[in-house]
Each structure stands twice: as structure tokens, then as C-alpha cells.
């Protein structure tokens, strides 16, 4: 296995006195899609939001252990630079109430452009990479809120791509979409992984099996803290799981 892009070491997260994640150590391989699955409430989303420190927005959250990006501790990084490198797409599409263009240009505008790059070119490149360009190229000034749900979600992906991240976190990106829009997103993921490392949370096991290269299975223990039960290549997890709890879960015996 190549050098991991991100890794967590003995990572724990607490809401006040409640331990929500229990000592998770896991590697995120580069240019692969890693899926995180598990029953609802097991801490999948919380774990995902640990990679770009979004949990810090919640008062009373405390963490122990380490999270590394390219070998560097993300807590020693500036949070703004971290989130620039580790982008995120949310469960429900959340475009800003601005035009399509302004949504994609938002990140580059705040971070500044690389020398010699034009904003228009970057917006076009990002929209193309998110497979949305052909549908919106004639009217980039239209409000983003007028797009369909699936288009909005691809716009949010384009918006994340425009800041040129290394890692993209996706929190059930298709759960609010219809099957056709979902399919489009899944196809998009396959092309994106050539250039990006993707971590995706999904409650849909078929989706995890279809799109991901690696799968992590999280489950809460007796004290309702999320634990990493098993992590490995997706094929192995879904065909020959080592842990009986994983087998129970993927065969639909609980959760």
C-alpha cells in the first residue's frame, strides 16, 4: 500500500463528557475512494468531519489522538489552509444564494488565484470536472438556487474543486437526490479519483460496494461510542469480512 494521504492515530472525540469516537486508527490511501459505512448514529459523519476540523464549530467538542495530512498534524496546521487542502461536500446541497459563477468563484476569490490563472478559466475547469459545464455554460449568471437538486450537488462539488484541494470529503452526497442524479454523482466520483483522494460516508451499502476502493466499517459499542470494526479493500470487506459484526451488517442482519 502506498504512503497514506491522511491517517488517524488513536483518535477519540468527546461531546462534553460523552465519548462519540473511540480510539480510531485508520489510513486514507491517496487517489482512491474510501467509504465509511455503519448504522446511523455510529459517528460516521463526525469521523468524516474530523479530517477538516469541522467539528470545532460545535461547542463542547474535545479530541485526543492525532490526525495527519501528508504526515503533518492537522491540529498544528492553520485551519484555513487545512480546509483549502481538504474540501467537503455536504449531505444536502448547500449552494450560496448567488449566481452559479459566483458560487464556484467563491473559494478562489477568498484564497487568491495562482499566478497566470484566470478566474473564468478556473470556474470553467471546475464545472467541467464536476460534469456540470454543459448544462450551465450558457447561463452562468443564473441563481444557483434555480438548479435541480442533483445539479446543485454537482455545483457544490465544482465549488470544492475550485480551491484545488488534495482530499475531498463527502457526507452522504447523494442521499437527498433521485436515482438518476445519484448515478451521475457516482460516475463523477470515478473520474475525480484520478486527481483527488476521496472519503465518502454513505448509509447505502450497495453504493459503497459500487464506488469505493477501500471500506471502513464503524459500529458503536455498549457505551454508544463509535469504533472502527474493520478496514480493508472494499472487495474483501464485502466478500470475506474478518469480523463477524461486519458480516452481520453487510448481510443486513442489523442496522
Amino acid at each position: 500500500m502506498p504512503e497514506p494521504r491522511m491517517r488517524t492515530i488513536d483518535y477519540c472525540l468527546y461531546y462534553g463528557g460523552f465519548r462519540a469516537l473511540n480510539s480510531i486508527s485508520m489510513d486514507i490511501p491517496p487517489n482512491m475512494i474510501t467509504a465509511i459505512i455503519g448504522p446511523s448514529g455510529c459517528g460516521k459523519s463526525t469521523f468524516l468531519r474530523s479530517f477538516n476540523r469541522m467539528n470545532e464549530l460545535i461547542p463542547g467538542v474535545r479530541v485526543t489522538g492525532k490526525v495527519l495530512l501528508d504526515g503533518e498534524d492537522i491540529f498544528s496546521l492553520d485551519v484555513v489552509s487545512l480546509r483549502r487542502k481538504v474540501g467537503m461536500v455536504f449531505q444536502r446541497p448547500n449552494p450560496f444564494p448567488k449566481s452559479i459563477f459566483d458560487n464556484v468563484a467563491y473559494g478562489p476569490r477568498i484564497h487568491g488565484l495562482r499566478k497566470g490563472d484566470s478566474l473564468a478559466a478556473l470556474v470553467e475547469r471546475s464545472l467541467k470536472a464536476a460534469a456540470l459545464w454543459d448544462e450551465v455554460k450558457d447561463d452562468l449568471q443564473k441563481s444557483a438556487l434555480s438548479l435541480s437538486g442533483g445539479q446543485q450537488q454537482r455545483l457544490c462539488i465544482a465549488r470544492a474543486l475550485a480551491v484545488e484541494p488534495e482530499v475531498i470529503l463527502m457526507d452522504e452526497p447523494a442521499s437527498a437526490l433521485d436515482p438518476i442524479a445519484t448515478l451521475k454523482i457516482e460516475e463523477l466520483l470515478q473520474t475525480l479519483k484520478e486527481n483527488y483522494t476521496i472519503v465518502i460516508v454513505t448509509h447505502n451499502m450497495q453504493q459503497a460496494a459500487r464506488v469505493s476502493d477501500f471500506t471502513a466499517f464503524l459500529l458503536m459499542d455498549e457505551s454508544r461510542a463509535g469504533n472502527l470494526v474493520e478496514f480493508g479493500p472494499t472487495k474483501q470487506i464485502f466478500t470475506t469480512p474478518r469480523d463477524s459484526r461486519t458480516e452481520d451488517y453487510i448481510s443486513g442482519r442489523f442496522g
Binding site: 492553520d78 484555513v80 489552509s81 477568498i110 484564497h111 487568491g112 488565484l113 495562482r114 499566478k115
Partner: peptide, 11 residues
Amino acid sequence: MSSRSPAGRKL
């Protein structure tokens, strides 16, 4: 417009 430093933006 070149890349803006996070430190400046924090300021």
C-alpha cells in the same frame, strides 16, 4: 491577484 496568506486574512 496572487495567493493570499492565511496570516494576513486572519489579521
